[in-house]
Structures are given as C-alpha cells and as structure tokens.
C-alpha cells in the first residue's frame, strides 16, 4: 500500500480542525454552516482524534499492507482498489468484524454500514492534510 495519512504527534496541537474539514468534505452540501447546523444528521468525521496528556493526534485508515479487515470481513466487502482499502457499501451488512480487528480503530459504524477514511480520492491531497494548521498531518505516497 502506498497512500498514508500520517500524524506527527510532536506537532499536533489538538485543534481537531481535521475532523471539521472531514465532516464538511463528506457532508451532503459541502458547506460548513449547512453541514454543522442544518443538515438533518451531521456527517461524522472519518478521523479519530485521540489524546493522552500532551500526546495527541488523529488516526485514520493506514492502508495496511496486509489488511486484517479484508481477511475478517464476512461479506467480502472490503477490497484494495487504486492502492487504497475500500469498503463496498452495497455489500457491507454491518457485521463489524472489521471493527473487531482493525489495529488502529480506524473503521467506524454507520447505519448498518462500516465507513472509514477514503483518502479524499477526488482531491490532490486529503482535505485534513491540506488544512492542518501546524502541518502535523502529512500525506505519504510512495
């Protein structure tokens, strides 16, 4: 796997802007005000922000080399496409086997469907990385 969003916790200040941008990016309207105040259900962020004392950072799908989620999925709904781990929401039935095995806790529960970071496939670089004010988040493509 070649695409990864990495958080350098020495630089992460815990502002959680990554989550805000992620929510807006994946919302219906794509508008911050509508996304946060007027859409029926606020689109959840794909980022998982975590903090321990001064250590903090965000975790998203790391596109593992040999993803455990793919092996555990009871529906064969998780695949590698374009060097990215993708969840086929048509197939997903919400058995949460992926949540049981993801070592980073990067897969989230939606309405009977699992979802996770899609690495903003339609952007040059993921929106969280582009908007991280202290450049704690970086995007590795190799």
């Amino acid at each position: 796997m070649k695409r990864r969003i990495i958080c350098d916790e020495d630089y992460c200040i815990g502002c959680r802007l990554c989550e805000v941008h992620c929510t807006v990016k994946h919302s219906k309207s794509g508008d911050i005000l509508l996304a946060y105040k007027y859409e029926n259900e606020k689109e959840p962020s794909r980022m998982e922000f975590e903090q321990k004392n001064i250590s903090c950072g965000s975790i998203v799908c790391m596109n593992c080399k040999d993803p455990l989620c793919i092996k555990a999925c009871s529906m064969g709904a998780i695949k590698i496409e374009d060097e990215t781990v993708k969840i086929d929401t048509e197939r997903c039935v919400g058995c949460w086997m992926c949540i049981m095995v993801c070592p980073f806790g990067a897969i989230k529960r939606g309405d009977k469907k699992a979802f996770k970071c899609d690495h903003c496939f339609d952007e040059a670089i993921p929106i969280c990385v582009a908007n991280c004010p202290n450049k704690a988040l970086s995007y590795e493509v190799d």
């Binding site: 070592p103 806790g105 989230k108």
Partner: peptide, 8 residues
C-alpha cells in the same frame, strides 16, 4: 464496541 480492534 468501537475501536475493539485496538484491544485485539
């Protein structure tokens, strides 16, 4: 059950 995989 969220993030159970971390324990696993």
């Amino acid at each position: 059950i969220d993030r159970a995989g971390i324990l696993n």
